[in-house]
Nucleic acid binder design. Sequence first.
DNA 1: TGACGCATGTAACCTGTTACATGATTTA
DNA 2: TAAATCATGTAACAGGTTACATGCGTCA
Lengths: 196, 196
Amino acid sequence: MPRKSRTPYAILGALSHGPKSGYDISCYFEKDHMFFWNESYGQIYPTLKKLLKEGLVEVEVDTRTQGPERKVYTLTPEGQEVLQSWLTETDCKSSFRDELMLKLHFGMPEVQKNLLDRLQNMEKELSDGLDALLVESEQMEELDLSKEELAYRKMTMNWSKMFYEAKLRWCQESLKDFGIKKSSKKKKKKKKKNKS
Amino acid sequence: MPRKSRTPYAILGALSHGPKSGYDISCYFEKDHMFFWNESYGQIYPTLKKLLKEGLVEVEVDTRTQGPERKVYTLTPEGQEVLQSWLTETDCKSSFRDELMLKLHFGMPEVQKNLLDRLQNMEKELSDGLDALLVESEQMEELDLSKEELAYRKMTMNWSKMFYEAKLRWCQESLKDFGIKKSSKKKKKKKKKNKS
DNA sequence: TGACGCATGTAACCTGTTACATGATTTA
DNA sequence: TAAATCATGTAACAGGTTACATGCGTCA
């Protein structure tokens, strides 16, 4: 038997935090504090269609005066139920694949040639990510959530922060160990995620 | 165009750290310090076959007096070359999926019922993982590697340690935040990976 | 006018998991 | 003697990525 997709649950969960379009859902999982999950368009749109057919979500076309068409999806009571039964299941699986780290692990002269750049890019991304995280954290506080909801979100938000901080620290230590000065190159501002 | 598999490179890389059987390779990626990568049997064996056909690895049947049959694979010069060209490519992709963290993020009463257990199990796994990491770290020192090789492996080993420590800290803080006493339950010794 | 962000979607196609099948050896 | 570990492998099947296609609105 092949594996069971978690994508429908992830989408249901995202919708439990408010109605969203496919695009919104994609953005939701792109946020820095969601580094522990990813979804791609190719999964989101077909899954949304499937969930609609199963009656777990409802759709409404946003007829705003401006901007392109938006199909906004909402969780139905049935969807809520399915989400809850998934949340209750205790067996969880996880998978991690960090190609850059793998290459570093196999470190050979080929890697060293670009080590400086790789680590510096990573450092930049991480520190940008931390900045974004602070913004996301503040936005969350303004969301008018119940005490309990806020506690859960703060818990995972906190994990994201600790992860970014730890990786940034590791990055800086590694740069130091390889005798590389941080200030040796001009840094260009470029927003690019290491995700996907 | 579909994505390109990293599995052949991961296997080539593993073999660059010494000859291995399919089983050995599986164990290699199960190690705690390799938390940032995973491979399953269903990929390893067929890929090994493919690499053999392409001449990137060689096989030799281990005719030991005891134990089941072992097919030990070795990297060929061609395999080494392919590995190196992959290491040189600078664009790396990564994906993370941590189902438990996702559930926690969507935190609802359903999650809270098991929150104590989930966090305590996680804490146990992480602290076991840290212990294993120390052992793996010592084993590495005894491996008689060149200065350079050692530096790379220490670098990623260090990341694994920092990751485990950060997650453990997060786990303990979360337990505290939810007003849960660590000593409230007997802990059973049970080695089970959260991977895969 | 061109780039960029918003927005929806599909097709192709490989990737990767999981369950199954099998058996030897060691350890309690 | 039963369970755990070592060991190799395959089949089935869904899962998931990426490139492609398309178009509006805004801002420089």
